[in-house]
Design a protein around this nucleic acid. Structure first.
Lengths: 123, 123
DNA sequence: TGCGAAACTGGCCGGGTGGCCAGGACAGGG
DNA sequence: CCCTGTCCTGGCCACCCGGCCAGTTTCGCA
């Protein structure tokens, strides 16, 4: 282990906030075994931090809406969702309607896309 | 600077390669001012390293299918897609059918989710 | 020159979707 | 106690979606 057969790990930075980028660069610059990638250099991994101001606060979704949303993201139909959650199709449609409203979406596909963009769900 | 009023930077890991993940976690675990996020914890930045072997080759989608897919991800209906692309609704449905087939999806919502997961489209 | 792939269009139809109406149960706060 | 929010259910209906059938044109490649 002393004679390092594992090469340095090259990290790239993709950080919107300049202050955070500076702090991270300063911290990581002194870590043995790590190196920050130069411009255009191929990196083993990338540190990503998108500007949080883009999505100020998460939309207030109830637990049941989150349940329905997660199943929607799996491509489940209202009938399937109803079966999985043990509720009626009408109730599912009710929650879907609320989701479309809160997420400002025109349909279930749009709702899933919006939710994913805002980090409400993970694809 | 010595008495640092800036809190630790919380980093999340999204790394497909377990070996790389371990090495990074070990290296970063000892850096003062840094901390790795727990499960589900909100992180200031994320270290991403997608294993290219996980998705060997992108699914062969035609240009038109990509057009339709992009509009689907915007939540557009078949009618809207038809108008935007200047083609008939039938043709849109034809391409959507091909997409469902190639992406192994059960519906348009599922198709968009799969495509986003595989990096075919960006949300 | 033939041949397949891609793109495009049409009709038909069962089932899914979303919007609207209405209502009930149940917990928590003013 | 009433009011609000969440969750749940029902019916009704116009529309959309996806799958099936069929066909055309255009293009590049063998």
């Amino acid at each position: 282990m002393s004679t390092d057969n594992t090469p340095e790990i090259v990290l790239a930075l993709e950080i919107d906030d300049p202050a955070l980028a500076d702090r991270l660069a300063a911290l990581l610059g002194n870590v043995a075994g790590l190196r920050l990638a130069g411009p255009g250099e191929q990196a083993a991994a990338t540190i990503v931090a998108r500007d949080p101001r883009v999505m100020p606060e998460d939309i207030a979704l109830t637990q049941r809406e989150l349940d329905v949303l997660a199943l929607m993201a799996e491509g489940a139909s209202n009938k399937m969702i109803a079966r999985r959650l043990g509720i009626s199709v009408h109730t599912v449609k009710f929650h879907v309607g609320s989701l479309l409203d809160k997420l400002d979406a025109t349909g279930r596909t749009d709702a899933v896309a919006h939710a994913a963009r805002r980090g409400v769900i993970e694809l």
